Simulated scan of single mutants.
Amino acid sequence: MQGPAIFMDISLEDQAQELRKYFKSLGAEISEEKSPKGIEDDLHKIVGVCDVCLKETNENEIEAILNSIVSIMVSIPLERGENLIVAFSQRLGKSPGPKVGLIALQSLWRLYNNLEANSPLRYHVYYHVIELAARVGAVKDVFSGVEHLKKEFSSCPPSNEQMQKLYRLLHQVLKDHNSELASKVMIELLGTYTDENASYAREDAIKCIVTALADPNTFLLDPLLSLKPVRFLEGELIYDLLTIFVSEKLSSYLTFYENHKEFVQSQGLNHEQNVKKMRILSFMQMAESNPEITFDEMITELQIDEKNVEAFIIEVLKTKLVRARMDQAARTVRVTSTMHRTFGPAQWQQLRSVLLAWRANVHQAHESMKSVAAAQLEYTAQQQKA
């Protein structure tokens, strides 16, 4: 969404008076006369009744009126700007219907983009932009990811509390439509807590875990255990469930579910989806230490019917977490590489060994090339002497 504010070829005071007359004609409780206190007071009066135009049927007229209000807002110094911005945003947020709501969103988005990059008011506008975008189904048009969001506020970073509030809102509006992005937002939220206040983030931490477990595309869950608010949940059932998904096998999950069915259901988690994810995670764990896995091993370990083994293997390969070839005749899967479910000291040691071997090979290749180059130079010198 984009577009500059629209400016009329008349003074701000005259523009404000025209808006007063327009809203008066719609039956709004506002005087047609200019305020003796100046343009800022005019704007406060106009914002107080601006939602009256949202009931009109002429969408072009609604857009023109809202853009006129925005053009005045970005043209004057706002000493009490925060209250004015919040009031304007809240009234636009009550837009009746998706079409009018989208027009209101576009006007609010123009306001956001026309405020100075270092203005603290941009945060307040953006928060209400997300609220309204969620109502009209346009969140993807105004939010593309956490990194982009950080760049948007790099010139004037909001307070930690403000960002926590925004991350919670984003998680709420994303969780039912984009669980992967919602999970990233929640992880970012948990990262804003420190050792001092991590214990107060219990609800956020639980939401983060549940979102990650429920996301069908999230398999590497080990990083969650390093988040301070998540560590404060140690000893609770949600933490135990997370550790199962991080490092244990399907059998552990099934045992947990048998003992805590009501808990799993109370978190809004789907048992069948959990089993599906745990099968893939368990297969990854098998692949870490077994370059060749038989169908019989999968049937036993993953509790899959024989008729479903090949379909399961294809599903695993689609995730790109494991690279392998299936040999139907030999009833085996030959693994070439796999992602690690956890990355602890053992994995770091393995990576170190791989890098050392790579460095040694590069050094050997370099020395070989030096020898070849020296021999070539010697041969050339001999030819010249001859």
Rank of each mutant, 00 (worst) to 15 (best):
Val322Arg: 05
Phe256His: 06
Asn259Tyr: 06
Leu281His: 01
Arg331Ala: 07
Leu241Val: 12
Arg279Glu: 00
Leu321Asn: 11
Pro345Thr: 09
Glu292Asp: 02
His271Ile: 09
Val333His: 06
Gln267Pro: 04
Val333Cys: 12
Ala324Pro: 15
Asn290Pro: 03
Glu288Ile: 09
Phe256Met: 09
Ala329Asn: 09
Gln350Ile: 08
His340Ile: 08
Pro291Tyr: 11
Arg323Val: 14
Trp358Cys: 09
Lys318Gln: 10
Tyr253Lys: 13
Arg334Met: 12
Ser282Ile: 04
Thr342Asp: 08
Ser251Phe: 11
Ala360Val: 14
Ala287Gln: 01
Val362Glu: 05
Val335Ile: 15
Ser371Phe: 14
Met278Val: 00
Leu321Pro: 07
Glu315His: 00
Lys249Met: 10
His340Pro: 03
Ala365His: 07
Trp348Gly: 07
Gly344Pro: 14
Thr243Gln: 14
Ala365Leu: 11
Phe245Leu: 05
Ser371Arg: 15
His363Asn: 14
Thr332Cys: 10
Gln364His: 08
Val275Glu: 03
Ile313Cys: 02
Lys249Trp: 12
Asp296Thr: 13
Ser337Glu: 03
Thr336Tyr: 05
Ala373Arg: 10
Gln347Cys: 12
Ile299Pro: 06
Gln349Trp: 12
Ser251Asp: 15
Ala373Glu: 14
Gln364Lys: 13
His363Thr: 13
Lys307Ile: 08
Val316Lys: 00
Leu269Asp: 04
Leu356Thr: 15
Ile313Lys: 00
Arg341His: 01
Trp358Ile: 12
Thr338Arg: 01
Trp358His: 08
Thr319Gly: 11
Thr300Ile: 11
Ala346Gln: 11
Gln273Met: 07
Gly268Ala: 05
Leu317Pro: 04
Val335His: 02
Ile314Asn: 00
Lys276Ala: 00
Val335Gly: 03
Thr332Gln: 14
Ser282Glu: 01
Glu272Asp: 10
Ser252Phe: 15
Ala360Pro: 06
Ala357Arg: 13
Ala360Met: 15
His366Phe: 09
Glu306Ser: 04
Leu355Glu: 09
Phe263Lys: 09
Thr342Glu: 13
Ala287Ile: 06
Ile299Lys: 12
Lys276Asn: 01
Val362Met: 05
Gln273Asn: 06
Val372Glu: 15
Lys318His: 10
Ser337Cys: 00
Phe312Ser: 01
Asp305Val: 14
Gln267Asn: 05
Trp348Met: 12
Val335Cys: 03
Thr338Phe: 00
Arg334Tyr: 07
His366Glu: 08
Thr336Asp: 06
Trp348Tyr: 09
Leu242Met: 04
Lys277Gln: 01
